[in-house]
């Protein structure tokens, strides 16, 4: 997450950013990870939009998450359209076409590749790390 926030801070004057909150990857009632217990990130898989919105707000507040935010509704339309679960990055160019398609997380989720795409277009930008970016 810190990588993405840093990319946002570095390139927000050149590109727009949008985080899309999708279904949980490791909820308590499915495949919970020990690290989630340790970090106190324990949520059941939302059954309603209200529950998903509540968790998304907890996330945004806990990390003072600065990126613009949208939440996939319970039809999971955005997730299905972009095959995004559990985490993935795309870049859409000004003409509305996919310019960068990231791999599927966690193993092929590589924010550095998105940074490279932006750097190739706008040059290397590196600001001081923000406090929120250093949180995780």
């Amino acid at each position: 997450m810190g990588d993405v926030i840093q990319i946002y801070e570095d390139y927000k004057n050149h590109a727009d950013f949008l985080t899309v909150y999708v279904r949980e990857a490791h909820p308590t009632d499915e495949w919970q990870m020990k690290s989630n217990v340790k970090d106190d990130v324990c949520y059941a898989q939302p059954k309603t939009l209200e529950q998903r919105v509540t968790i998304a707000n907890d996330f945004a507040k806990r990390f003072k998450y600065p990126l613009p935010f949208g939440i996939d509704d319970m039809s999971n339309a955005a997730n299905d359209a972009y095959a995004a679960w559990p985490e993935r990055i795309y870049i859409i160019d000004e003409s509305g076409h996919i310019a960068y398609r990231g791999g599927i997380g966690p193993f092929n989720y590589k924010p550095a590749e998105a940074r490279e795409w932006l750097a190739a277009r706008y040059g290397t930008v590196k600001h001081e790390a923000q406090p929120a970016a250093a949180a995780k």
Partner: peptide, 10 residues
């Protein structure tokens, strides 16, 4: 350009 970042809390 729009950078789309998909993910969740857990």
């Amino acid at each position: 350009p729009l950078v789309l970042v998909f993910g969740s809390f857990t």
